[in-house]
Simulated assay, not measured.
Amino acid sequence: MEWTGARYADKPTVQVQTWIDGPPERVWAVVSDVGLMPEMSDELQSVTWCDGATGPALGVRFVGASSHEALGAWSTQSQIVEFEPPRVFGWAVQDPENPTALWRFTLQPRDGGTELTQWMQMGPARSGLSLAIDRMPDKEQKIVFVRLREFENAIRGTLAQIKQRVEQA
């Protein structure tokens, strides 16, 4: 695990990686199927493709509905901004030019399997977390730290489930 940044304006990031006993093509089939992600997430509840799309491609959009005990329920629209099968799958949340978050899976062949990395960046655009920071600006670093830890734990869980799905296939 690795994370950087202490203030929201710094565009803090978190990154976690794991090794999976399976070729990148098999791992790619799971990570690029965003419809599977709610099954592997406590926060993401559902994903719906937009504009008649039925699968991932560069520029395609999808809506994710999420729920969090402290933050409530919300939906965001994301756009796929990186799509290089079977190596990179990334999306921007809300406006791709000024996202509230960026997410990316990177797959690298390694030791007869795949090194899978999931990375995310908060900001630079305002998000729901910005509202909490507005209410308690003196606690910004703690708010950002806590949310990064939540993302780190969620990513660890997602990667473990992807690993299990691929290795048991």
Rank of each mutant, 00 (worst) to 15 (best):
T4I: 08
G5E: 08
R7N: 06
A9M: 00
D10T: 02
T13H: 01
V14Y: 05
V14G: 01
V16N: 11
W19S: 06
W19F: 06
P24Y: 10
E25L: 10
E25C: 08
V27F: 02
V27Y: 02
V27D: 09
V30A: 11
V31M: 10
V34M: 14
G35F: 06
L36H: 03
E39D: 12
M40T: 03
S41I: 05
D42T: 01
V47T: 08
W49G: 05
A53Q: 07
G59A: 05
R61K: 14
R61V: 03
F62Y: 09
V63C: 05
G64L: 01
S67E: 14
L71N: 06
G72P: 03
W74I: 08
T76F: 03
T76D: 10
V93F: 08
Q94M: 15
Q94A: 14
D95F: 01
N98S: 01
N98P: 01
P99D: 03
F105A: 04
R110W: 03
D111S: 12
G112E: 10
T114L: 12
T114F: 09
M120K: 07
Q121S: 12
M122C: 08
G123L: 06
A125D: 08
R126V: 06
S127F: 02
L129Y: 03
I133G: 01
E140M: 05
K142G: 07
F145E: 15
F145R: 15
L148C: 05
L148M: 13
I155D: 08
R156K: 15
T158R: 11
K163I: 06
Q164N: 11
A169H: 03
